[in-house]
């Protein structure tokens, strides 16, 4: 397509016709050399490839090597992956990560849904304030979150103070130093961080559900519970998928919080893959094994996000 002559350009009808033609061929903007697009992309692509795509490939390569980061590496084939599947010390972090996913994803989504359902039944005053406050944990550096919660969960911290004050002092303990309780304690911090995100997502989604559906449900005599199950829950399906994706990714990526609060301890009670990759690569110099774990973690994240997407789409069709 060439640019139209100046005379025609001035005539409104010709312009309208041209616009209609362009709208018909939406995919091609008029008069544009196609290859120019690639020029615009190129600078970003070079940087992205050098510092993200290439290292991604190198991680896969490293995962097939036996390398301590210093001396010459040797080919290990699938040995690193075999160890990952058989060595209990390497499997434990994945089990911990799955436990944490309950606290990072399932619990926040459930709490967010319940709260959103309660809040969308009538106009709540001061909603902007509540939303700002509940979303706040999302913008704080995880390092700061870790420092704050470490002092709350400390032996002489706020949680134990409260327990003692209500006469449950027997339950007080060093939450982050306890073999049984350290993992759930770190999990609760995740719930604290992610619940606001889910709530804000669901509130926005609930506003898009047509009011008539609620009115129809109420005319049919549905109570709060029926209304939730038949109107709110189906209406929020898309938002639930987004919330699950975001929280699962955040939960599995989580390194900062573990590093600050427990460093994987006590023992390896709170070690997770994200932390173990760092520890193996930079503290115990098992680079190949660390890379294999990084690959496995990436596969797990992609697998779970695909499952979430499938679950949602499957129910739609």
């Amino acid at each position: 397509m060439t640019a139209p002559p100046a005379k025609e350009r001035a005539r409104p009808s010709a312009r309208a016709a041209l616009r209609a033609y362009a709208a018909h061929h939406r995919r091609r903007a008029p008069g544009e050399p196609r290859a120019v697009g690639l020029l615009y992309v190129l600078p970003a692509l070079v940087l992205y490839a050098l510092f993200l795509l290439v290292p991604l490939g190198q991680t896969v390569w490293l995962s097939f090597l036996d390398w301590d980061g210093l001396t010459a590496a040797s080919w290990a084939g699938f040995d690193n992956y075999r160890e990952l599947a058989t060595d209990p010390a390497l499997r434990a972090p994945f089990a911990h990560a799955l436990v944490l996913l309950f606290f990072y994803a399932v619990l926040p989504v459930a709490l967010g849904l319940l709260l959103a359902a309660a809040l969308s039944r009538f106009r709540v005053r001061g909603m902007t304030f509540f939303r700002t406050v509940l979303f706040l944990p999302q913008v704080l550096a995880m390092v700061v979150v870790g420092v704050a919660w470490r002092s709350i969960l400390a032996p002489d911290g706020l949680l134990n103070d409260v327990l003692r004050a209500v006469g449950a002092g027997g339950l007080a303990r060093s939450w982050l130093g306890d073999y049984t309780w350290a993992l759930p304690a770190v999990g609760v911090v995740g719930t604290w961080v992610e619940t606001g995100l889910c709530l804000v997502l669901f509130l926005a989604g609930a506003q898009r559900i047509p009011r008539e559906l609620y009115e129809a449900a109420r005319i049919d005599g549905a109570g709060a519970v029926r209304e939730f199950l038949t109107v709110t829950l189906p209406g929020l399906r898309g938002e639930i998928a987004v919330a699950l994706t975001l929280t699962i990714v955040a939960g599995l990526r989580n390194f900062d919080l573990i590093y600050i609060t427990t460093s994987g301890g006590p023992g390896n009670a709170t070690s997770v893959p994200a932390f173990e990759v760092y520890r193996r690569a930079f503290e115990v110099n098992e680079v190949g094994s660390a890379a294999a774990m990084g690959v496995a973690l990436t596969a797990l994240i992609f697998g779970l996000t695909v499952v979430v997407a499938r679950l949602v789409e499957g129910r739609t069709s």
Partner: peptide, 26 residues
């Protein structure tokens, strides 16, 4: 704009949205 491979390039960028740092860090 549209050019051959633009879809593929876009998906390459989107890949980075869910990629954990552990996949590239070492």
């Amino acid at each position: 704009m549209r050019f051959p491979g633009s879809e593929l390039l876009f998906y390459l960028f989107v890949l980075g949205l869910t990629l954990p740092q552990e996949a590239v860090l070492v």
